[in-house]
Design a protein around this nucleic acid. Sequence first.
DNA 1: CGTTAGCACTCGACTAAGATGAGTGCTAAC
DNA 2: GTTAGCACTCATCTTAGTCGAGTGCTAACG
Lengths: 344, 344
Amino acid sequence: MLTERQRLILNAIVDDYIRSAEPVGSRSISKRGDVGFSPATIRNEMADLEELGFLEQPHTSAGRIPSHKGYRYYVDHLEPIYEALPTELRSLRTYFAEKLNATEQVIQHAAMILSHITNYTSILLGPEVFHTSLRHFQLLSLNETTAVAIIVTSTGQVESKTVAIPAGVSVSDMEKVVNLLNSKLVNVPLYKLKSSLYRELGQEMQRHLTHFEEIMGILDNIFVDTETDQRVYLSGATNMLNQPEFKDVDKVKDILDLLEETPTLTKMMAATQGSAGIQVRIGTENDHEAFANCSLITATYSLDGEALGTIGILGPTRMEYARVMSLLGILSNDLTKMLSKLYK
Amino acid sequence: MLTERQRLILNAIVDDYIRSAEPVGSRSISKRGDVGFSPATIRNEMADLEELGFLEQPHTSAGRIPSHKGYRYYVDHLEPIYEALPTELRSLRTYFAEKLNATEQVIQHAAMILSHITNYTSILLGPEVFHTSLRHFQLLSLNETTAVAIIVTSTGQVESKTVAIPAGVSVSDMEKVVNLLNSKLVNVPLYKLKSSLYRELGQEMQRHLTHFEEIMGILDNIFVDTETDQRVYLSGATNMLNQPEFKDVDKVKDILDLLEETPTLTKMMAATQGSAGIQVRIGTENDHEAFANCSLITATYSLDGEALGTIGILGPTRMEYARVMSLLGILSNDLTKMLSKLYK
DNA sequence: CGTTAGCACTCGACTAAGATGAGTGCTAAC
DNA sequence: GTTAGCACTCATCTTAGTCGAGTGCTAACG
């Protein structure tokens, strides 16, 4: 749909704009060398590209900047030519040298490093409940009325919750319940835990226990989070402030506010989780007004062929797509390899 | 050291400046009503106050703003006259209505609400290791080479760590160790855990176990964090961006960067933990250049008479001291009461 | 016919000069 | 001791003018 020359010029404009954050003029494109035409010719093509919606003009006498559509085209036709620098690779892989052996720690650490070397914000969605199952359940009383419930998942995550034990419920009753859960519900996926509880154990428990209602109430309370709880970690949120387009506090405020809102983040990250590989969402494709000038690049990491979680890099729409995509690719590969080594 | 009139004028200036964030002139003080003197008289006093170091002048023809010394005087002589508004009290206490029964959750929630109603940033230092002890220790194997160690503290906090089990170490060996720990080290304060491990169990373990060295290595690895690990929670960090003094991105960047650095935060909060009651650190008293224009107000909450943790509110030096101090006072009281009800 | 040189035009960014006014310090009078 | 009066300072705002990067159009060129 675009001629070869148009493609070349669009590419050059996006490249330049990514580097400089300033509108790009026809003369500077001509001088780059890789487009061997005079400014006048380039101007003509630029006018066409603007009419087609790939470019925008902040005002009449300024250069052009890519529109969202322009970025989209650029990304879709990007050849993955970026070669990660040795220093980047080295820092990206330092965490393999350290003795980390918890999924969460490894991934968290990786995301931190990623935000450092890219100078963007990294968002990380922890292992997904859909793919983790119950490994062990335990109840530990702290005093007469309070106890801690501990849930260990198949990936080694530990969730805990303090619960109140109603008067009248005996220790032996609770022990029975815990044993029952451990014998019947181990290896059940977390998101099915609550339903399995009723279906498989309801009758049996009602037979053996005196305070059935109260105990079910407690268990409900313990498992209520397991259905939705996905941990989100942020790293380098303040890197947003480095971008010249956000030098105005009001613009960046909305973004940082949104980043503080865990549920929104979870939702946004989860939305990309459908398809594997590296995903790019540009500007308004993120469905959040605050992110209208941001792009989010995500990659999933997996264990056993199944997507476990997502790592995302958030930056301005004018972000270094090639570099970030390449780095994310390397990382998600390494992570997947490492996880399978840990848990196979 | 200051005359009554000087005190009155200083108070008025600080009050006005807190409200308006603009240098305060002599005329506006005179018009307030509570200082019944003409602008000229007030100007004379202001000149004296400036010479004494309580006030500063941004430039010759501007009004005065309080210096750090001025704020300090203001805070030290502040009569706690602020009456919390009914709406403030109500939202501050909503979390008591909800059924929360984990220390951490309650406090975290409280800090969140506090940052909302004050429009400042709240920082929260979780229960201190100095005052929590081991309640239960457990090791749960995930597969042949990996296991999860779970530590439950006397306040119901759960810490977990995934560890690698070296080949050759048998399950029964590990079981022996776990039993030994649970029988000998329960109720030992967390920060003494590592030393007690060597002193009390070293010999006995060496006698009974085959792979003593390896096992001690694992335990070391598990307990290494317990000596220092204090969780820090942040809420409303972006509220900093609302303050007119931080409308310049460069100024606020350093602050937000520092807030992202957990260890620094921990240290800063821990520094205030010495004395009980409400503490105020103004400007450079915080020992961090980035916080030179910020004040930190902290309160400790306690269980059983011993300080457990700290809640802090961070704002510009020009912050509403009276209001925040009063709210923090109410909250730390309520929290202390609630905790003792939960764990007694 | 595609490409390019030339040129008038646009418009934001920067600069300088002047006006405004809030606020001060000083002096003299009450 | 207090206050009115007044000259002075200086950041902020406004206006006008200049500059220059970049455009769109036209005409010439191979």
